[in-house]
Amino acid sequence: MSTAKHDGKVRGFQFSPWNLLLIVPLLILVTPLFNVDGPRLFGMPFFYWFQLAFVVVGVLSTWIVYVMTRDKPTADAADKLSVDDLDEGDAR
Rank of each mutant, 00 (worst) to 15 (best):
F13A: 06
D37Q: 12
R11G: 00
M44R: 03
D84P: 04
P17W: 15
W18Q: 04
A53Q: 08
K5T: 07
V59R: 01
V36A: 08
D7E: 03
I64E: 04
Y48Q: 11
K80T: 06
F46Q: 04
Q51H: 01
V36M: 10
S82R: 09
W49D: 01
V65W: 00
V67M: 07
F34A: 05
D76C: 02
R11Y: 12
G58L: 01
V10P: 00
A53D: 10
R92D: 15
L41D: 00
P39C: 11
G38R: 13
R40D: 04
R40F: 02
T31S: 06
N19K: 13
F15M: 06
D7M: 00
V30S: 04
N19C: 11
L22F: 03
S82P: 06
K5S: 09
N19M: 14
L60A: 15
A77W: 04
P73D: 03
P17Y: 09
V65Y: 00
F34M: 02
E88A: 09
T69R: 02
M44S: 05
F34Y: 15
M1E: 14
L60Y: 08
G58P: 00
F54K: 02
V24D: 05
F46K: 03
K80N: 07
F42K: 02
W63D: 01
G38K: 13
V56F: 05
A77D: 08
T62D: 03
S82A: 09
D79S: 12
D90K: 14
S16V: 09
D76V: 08
L52S: 08
R92L: 13
V30L: 14
Y66E: 03
A53G: 15
P17E: 09
L20C: 15
P17N: 07
N35S: 13
I64K: 04
T62V: 11
T31F: 08
T31L: 10
T62K: 00
G89K: 02
F46T: 03
F54R: 04
S16N: 13
V30F: 14
K5M: 06
D87N: 15
F54S: 09
M1A: 15
L20F: 15
G43P: 06
D7T: 06
G89P: 04
T3S: 13
L29Y: 10
L21G: 10
K80D: 08
W18T: 02
L86E: 08
W49N: 02
D79N: 11
A78E: 11
S61Q: 11
G8M: 02
L81S: 09
Q51W: 00
Q14I: 11
A77G: 07
E88H: 12
V67Q: 10
R92N: 10
G43C: 08
A77F: 05
M1G: 14
P45Y: 01
D90F: 13
T62Y: 06
N19A: 13
S2D: 14
T31G: 00
F47D: 09
D37I: 07
V56C: 05
D84F: 03
